[in-house]
Amino acid sequence: MRISTFLLPLFSLLPIAFAADQGHWADLASNSKDGIIKLDSASYEELLASDREYSVSVVLTALPAQFKCQPCHDFDPAFHQVAASWRRKPRHVRDGHFFAQLDFADGQAVYQQLGLSSAPTVQFHPALAGPNKSNKLSVITYELNRNGLTAPPLHAFLNNLTPEGFAFYKPINPINYIAIPASILAIGLSLYSMRKIIVPLVQSRLIWGTFSIILILTFTSGYMWNKIKNAPYVAAGPNGQISWIAGGYSNQLGLESQVVGGIYGILAFSIVALTLLIPAQSSPAKQRVGVYLWLAMLVVVFSLLIKLFRMKNGGYPFALLF
């Protein structure tokens, strides 16, 4: 009778002790910047006691430089970001789930116990008692190899396991809201101060004409086709010699497109010379000589273009000079 009288108050204090343990972890999480509890081997075992009424997400990592774990450093911001998102829940909710981190330097015994040989590893430990007790497995491991090292997949994984769902929070970077408008304003002021130089250039027919011809030559020469098809620059012929012309209508080589582009460019400049440069000459004799020269250039170069087409397609029946 005396023993039962003595033990009864102790048994009545057990729920209070368990609640105090949960409150201890809640205080540690609350005092942490991102709500993450730093662990060692002993506190890892205490946090994951078999009678816990809370769930835990633990990342086992190896952040010190001597371990050279680059994936650990890549994943660490993602884990902190998800933990910070959970920390935004009301305290009575977030105290039902904790985020914790165990570094290899502080928990080698745990690594040996779990048989882990690589990091990082994320484990979800559901509540084993109390109102949030789950019928899930005692440990659920997050598949980093399949989901990657970013925060959104980790949030999606934990959002289905925590006592309540929580939104993924991405902090706003105020620098972007300052730097972008400031850059736009600086560019605008610079352009305005240079308006006496920029406006004549924008209104110049010569510049727009040159730019248009370059674009036309780029697309008509087959450059974009080469980029899309990843065509070789040259190819080996049947006897081992280097060939720069690909036979057929549906094939082309890089050097071939450059030659075609050059021919198109000379033809375009010949037309520009006949329509703009020659009429600008004040002397009729110079105009006459210029017409003869540029017409001869036009005919010769166009004949080369037809010759090139015949080399590419043997059945083509037409020719001009060659």
Rank of each mutant, 00 (worst) to 15 (best):
D51A: 08
A62M: 12
A84V: 08
S55H: 04
E46F: 10
D27I: 08
I37T: 02
Y44P: 04
S30I: 00
S50M: 02
I36W: 02
A26P: 00
V56T: 12
A29R: 00
S32Y: 03
C72V: 10
A65N: 14
D40W: 00
A42D: 15
Q66S: 10
D74M: 13
W25K: 04
D51W: 08
H73P: 00
W25G: 06
N31T: 11
G35A: 05
A83S: 13
D34N: 15
N31K: 15
S32F: 02
H73W: 07
E53N: 11
S55Q: 06
A49S: 09
Q66M: 09
A49G: 04
S32K: 00
L47H: 02
L48G: 09
C72S: 09
C72T: 13
E45M: 10
E45R: 14
D27R: 13
S43I: 07
D34H: 12
V56A: 03
F79A: 14
Q81G: 08
E53D: 13
S41N: 07
L48M: 02
F67H: 09
G35Y: 01
W25A: 01
L47G: 07
Q70H: 05
L48D: 05
D34V: 06
R52P: 03
A62H: 14
D76T: 07
K68F: 04
D74F: 09
S32H: 11
A84Y: 12
D74K: 14
R87Y: 14
I37C: 02
L48T: 14
D74Q: 14
E46A: 15
K33A: 14
F67V: 01
L63H: 09
V59Y: 03
A49F: 00
A62N: 08
L39P: 03
D51F: 05
L39M: 07
D40Y: 00
C72R: 07
R87N: 15
A84L: 13
A29L: 02
K33T: 15
W25D: 04
S41M: 03
V59K: 10
D34P: 02
H80Y: 05
V58F: 13
N31V: 06
L63E: 13
L60H: 15
P71K: 10
E46W: 01
P71Y: 09
A83H: 11
H80C: 12
R87H: 15
G35D: 04
L60N: 14
V58S: 11
H80D: 12
Y54R: 06
D34L: 10
R87V: 07
K38V: 10
F75Y: 10
C72I: 13
S32R: 05
A84F: 07
A78T: 04
W25H: 03
L63G: 09
S50L: 10
A78I: 01
D51H: 11
Q81D: 13
C72K: 05
A78L: 05
N31P: 00
V56Y: 07
Y54M: 06
Q81R: 14
D51Q: 03
L39G: 04
N31F: 08
S85H: 10
T61F: 07
I37L: 08
A26D: 09
H80S: 15
E53M: 04
D51K: 08
W25T: 01
C69M: 09
Y44E: 02
